Computed example of a mutant assay.
Amino acid sequence: MATTRQRILITGASSGLGAEMARQLAAKGRDLALCARRTDKLEALREEILAATPQARVLVRAMDVTDDAQVFEVTRAFAADLGGLDRVVVNAGLGKGAALGTGRHDVNRETAVTNFLGALAQTEAAMEVFRAQGHGHLVMVSSMSAMRGLPRSMTTYAATKAAVAHLVEGLRLELLGEPYAFTVLYPGYIASEMNDATDSARKPGLVSTEKGVHAMVEAMEKEKAEACVPPLPWAPLSVVMRHAPLPVLKRMV
């Protein structure tokens, strides 16, 4: 049975998957530290959670994950406020992108900086807290797109999501047998700001935010090393994506 992680920090918590994680974890009685760039949305989410779960403890702070100094400052402040952090969910990210060589290096760079360098700073800050207290659970929100290199507008995004998964694998190997847990989540099509529900015709298997996040929370609560979420159809598809010959993969994507 996995340890109960009471004090949980979630980045990118102002909307989408992060906000729904906060709702579902608050319903389980967890203490939450929520951060994102949009503090107005964080405050609204805090009020919503407290209305549904009056006993919940919800702290909010502004964090731009591309501002390294702010990432460390906010993570340390949350740890001080809560007397430590038991789990950090690295969730903030961008889905922008363009085919390489088509004149939109700006959007690819923005995605790379946010999704990889931002995740690196969040991971560094989380591990600083965990190493100081001697325990902790790091959860990295990757993507099914990390299974293989992908074409066109997904090329840079997929590369960043593969990179953050490798960050966690490196930590898992380094700290094997020590009191730390590491989880990589590979979400498929879950309705959010990045995967809009109105896009379901182009995204077969798209599930609601609530259902998708329920699978994510279940996997992190069990402290699985990695999980494709929801498991169906994404766990079987992950095998196909990893091993399909390129002509087959190209027809799939």
Rank of each mutant, 00 (worst) to 15 (best):
M147T: 11
H137T: 04
A126Y: 02
S145P: 05
L175T: 01
L185A: 12
A163P: 08
G188S: 03
A162P: 05
G95R: 12
A112M: 09
T102N: 11
D81W: 06
D196C: 14
A162L: 14
V168W: 00
E174T: 14
A80H: 15
G97S: 00
A158K: 08
G149V: 01
L173S: 13
H166N: 09
H137F: 04
S153M: 15
A165G: 13
P151V: 10
V113H: 02
S153W: 08
D196S: 15
A158Y: 03
D106I: 04
T156D: 02
V184F: 08
S145C: 08
R87I: 10
E169P: 02
A80C: 13
V141Q: 05
S145K: 05
G101W: 06
G83P: 13
A181C: 14
T156L: 00
Y180W: 10
F78R: 05
N91K: 07
L120V: 13
A146W: 05
G97V: 02
A132Q: 15
F116D: 06
S153A: 15
L85E: 14
F116N: 00
E169V: 07
N195R: 07
D106M: 11
F130Y: 05
E124L: 13
G93E: 06
L185T: 01
V90L: 07
S153R: 09
V113Q: 03
V129T: 15
P187W: 03
R109H: 10
L120W: 09
V88G: 07
V139D: 09
L167W: 02
H135S: 15
Q122F: 00
V88Q: 07
G188E: 04
M154W: 10
P187T: 09
A119H: 00
K96Y: 12
M147V: 13
N195W: 04
V141C: 00
N115M: 02
L138G: 12
E128C: 10
G93L: 04
H137V: 04
K161G: 06
I190M: 09
R104F: 06
G101S: 06
H137Q: 07
F130H: 02
M194D: 11
D106R: 11
E178G: 11
M140Y: 08
R104V: 04
